[in-house]
Simulated scan of single mutants.
Amino acid sequence: MSRKTHKTNQQNNGDERDKALALPAHVAGRAGLAGSDTLDRLVETARDYAKASTTENTNKAYAADWKHFARWCRLKGTDPLPPSPEMIGLYLADLASGAGSSLSQSACRPLSVSTIDRRLSGLAWNYAQRGFSLDRKDRHIATVLAGIKRKHARPPVQKEAIQAEGIRAMAATLGFELRGLRDRAILLVGYAGGLRRSELVSLDVGKDDTIDSGGWIETHDDGLVLRLNAKTGWREVEIGRGSSDQTCPVHALEQWLHFAKIDFGPVFVRTSRDGRHALDTRLSDKHVARLIKETVLKSGIRADLPEKDRLALFSGHSLRAGLASSAEVDERYVQKQLGHASAEMTRRYQRRRDRFRVNLTKAAGL
């Protein structure tokens, strides 16, 4: 797809969403209405808020979901509007069988249950933006999805957690030039905070420094407090100082900010090609993923596996899983640090834990 076509598709998706946000017909049709300029400005403001209701990555995924479904409908000789539970049920079956996950003539790998579920959420969201309601409980959708889950559901494939010794080895592979200081701070702060990639790169030095900020940092004698506007809402993350400067996330961040001369705007930015100067451009979250994979290879973690398998085992989530698996503290503290609504979600991140610490069999008298 050309850049021009991609831009046009994004514009079309935005136009469709904006149609639901306009002046009422009885107001819009009255030209010269007193205060109409103010109302028009409020419409634009409402549209800006609507665009901010979901993250950029979610918007991209939902746009791709709609584009795929719309093309599938055209190939089947039908139209995606208005919503048809019968056709959506057939679409889900096509995705699960492997024929519909690609629109080429050749068969392809079936999509996972989680991906199909996400696609359905994307369709429901897109229909809502176009003024339609999609009933996911309709039998043509619900029964097909239940059958797909019963037949094809598998335990989720989890990325491997990076343990404490691993993160220390990864940090040790980095130099002490500006780029190395930055990347070391990313690894250590991301690990100690149990942060998502997007949370890391969206941090600013201060509150309201930039319009695309996802939070800011506060430095105290005992550590850092991160104020994050995360996917689960505003939350605080406390990162205490470590036992040595070599592995202390607070010290690593202070070193980066000091030598990069950053006291305003994004915390983690790009550097010049020679690695000696900090630029103004905020890092992409993709840099975090690349950094983790590169330092995993350099540090020799899981050297018993081929390089391709090692790269596939680790991702940005390895930092969050590593904290959850390594921190020998009450589970409630880990849950709070990761921003999880339930202990069950936290346990999914714990790759190594004492599963039988609480023995209900003995507690029940057996």
Rank of each mutant, 00 (worst) to 15 (best):
residue 128 A to C: 08
residue 34 A to G: 02
residue 43 V to Y: 05
residue 157 V to R: 13
residue 23 L to P: 06
residue 356 F to N: 05
residue 255 Q to F: 00
residue 27 V to L: 13
residue 316 G to H: 02
residue 24 P to A: 06
residue 245 D to M: 09
residue 61 A to Q: 13
residue 162 I to L: 15
residue 364 A to G: 07
residue 315 S to G: 06
residue 352 R to F: 14
residue 112 S to E: 15
residue 226 L to M: 08
residue 335 Q to G: 05
residue 117 D to E: 12
residue 41 R to S: 11
residue 353 R to C: 02
residue 187 L to E: 07
residue 312 A to W: 03
residue 259 F to P: 04
residue 251 H to L: 06
residue 18 D to T: 09
residue 45 T to P: 04
residue 64 A to W: 15
residue 52 A to E: 12
residue 157 V to N: 11
residue 275 G to Q: 12
residue 133 S to V: 12
residue 148 I to Y: 02
residue 70 A to T: 04
residue 85 P to E: 13
residue 194 G to W: 02
residue 9 N to T: 11
residue 142 A to S: 15
residue 151 K to C: 07
residue 75 L to I: 04
residue 188 L to W: 07
residue 213 S to G: 09
residue 72 W to E: 01
residue 50 A to Q: 12
residue 200 L to H: 07
residue 270 R to H: 15
residue 90 L to A: 08
residue 75 L to R: 04
residue 97 S to V: 09
residue 202 S to N: 02
residue 40 D to G: 06
residue 361 T to L: 15
residue 116 I to H: 13
residue 90 L to S: 08
residue 46 A to R: 13
residue 204 D to A: 00
residue 224 L to D: 01
residue 6 H to K: 01
residue 87 M to C: 00
residue 361 T to P: 08
residue 218 E to R: 06
residue 75 L to A: 01
residue 268 F to L: 03
residue 74 R to I: 02
residue 195 L to D: 05
residue 348 R to F: 00
residue 314 F to D: 05
residue 268 F to T: 03
residue 321 A to I: 05
residue 298 K to R: 05
residue 260 A to F: 14
residue 160 E to L: 03
